[in-house]
């Protein structure tokens, strides 16, 4: 298990990370979301040892990270990092060997990855001759070539077309299913919702939500969309019949209502049926985007100052 334990980091007067903690299990895909400058990149750089935290530590299976453990990690920095003039295959082999993979194994792993990412024909092209989308695939390959047990990817999907997203997601999913722990940051919340087993939302260097996507959405609200075949005014009648019910949205035919935390959905349904035929009764679950907006929009914590990511 990869644990980030109470990481703090300042740049001069600016607080980038403030007591940040979360954990990622093997076989889990963890989405790391937050506004620009919330501290995602700083956190990832600390995990990779590219940056030192002011306090706190990162552990893998209980042991503080060191160079030897990090050798098993794969990293895709936000600003893509490859030698522009190197040939792709050669480049991947070089990176694998820096991770300590033997030459022959590295050679094969690089070829297999290029195959999987549909880049075999470009194997002996220079990195700079590829389109940006293809460079991004090579960048992913670079993070994967030594078969890492932990992968840390900063904005891996930004700038990819839908097909690119799908192929990259498939490659990542395969690694997760094989037991790797994957953390990636993204602004594409639908994508995070679709791909990730767990999500962490970071705001101003602090984690403000952390958990399985369903769990987060489930606890957020107890809302239902109702359509009842009754005369206008049925919504008000329903609200009167069910104690503590609030009306979120009132249309003529359908309405969205919210039960208090203690409320019972079956008695709500009974109350609705008493008014007329119920055509629709659907739990409304907030999307990750709704959730994100609600937690990020909360007033700043007292100590919160303007946060920036690593320049």
């Amino acid at each position: 298990m990869l644990e980030l334990d109470r990481l703090s980091r300042r740049y001069g007067d600016v607080v980038a990370l403030d007591d940040l903690s979360f954990a990622v299990r093997p076989g889990q895909m963890y989405g790391f979301v937050g506004t620009n400058g919330a501290g995602k990149t700083t956190a990832m750089r600390i995990v990779l040892g590219v940056l030192e935290p002011d306090s706190g530590e990162v552990r893998w299976n209980g042991a503080p990270l060191n160079q030897d453990i990090r050798r098993e990690f794969g990293y895709m920095p936000e600003e893509r990092g490859l030698y522009p003039k190197m040939q792709i295959h050669e480049h991947l082999v070089y990176l694998a060997r820096l991770h300590g993979v033997a030459r022959i194994t590295a050679d094969k792993a690089a070829s297999d990855l290029l195959e999987a990412l549909a880049l075999s024909e470009r194997a002996s092209d220079r990195v700079e001759s590829l389109s940006l989308g293809n460079q991004q695939r090579v960048q992913l390959a670079a993070a994967l070539v030594h078969e890492p047990t932990v992968m840390v990817l900063d904005e891996p999907f930004s700038g990819l077309d839908p097909m690119g997203v799908d192929s990259m997601a498939a490659v990542l999913r395969a690694r997760v299913d094989a037991g790797a722990a994957v953390v990636f940051s993204s602004h594409q919340l639908e994508l995070v919702e679709r791909l990730c087993d767990a999500v962490g939302i970071i705001r101003a260097g602090r984690l403000v939500a952390d958990g399985a996507v369903d769990e987060l959405r489930g606890t957020a609200a107890n809302r239902f969309r109702l359509a009842v075949g009754a005369a206008p005014g049925w919504v008000a009648a329903l609200a009167a019949a069910v104690p503590g019910l609030t009306v979120v949205e009132d249309g003529d035919r359908t309405a969205v209502v919210e039960l208090p935390p203690s409320g019972d959905d079956q008695s709500l349904l009974d109350a609705a049926r008493a008014l007329g035929p119920v055509h629709q009764f659907t739990p409304v679950r907030p999307t990750l985007a709704d959730l994100f907006r609600s937690v990020v929009a909360e007033p700043a914590v007292p100590s919160g100052s303007e946060k920036v990511e690593a320049a």
Partner: peptide, 17 residues
């Protein structure tokens, strides 16, 4: 500078000193 400007230095330094 090439390594810095292309950020490849981050990837490399995640593996070797």
């Amino acid at each position: 500078v090439e390594e810095k400007s292309s950020r490849v230095v981050e990837v490399i330094l995640a593996t070797i000193p």
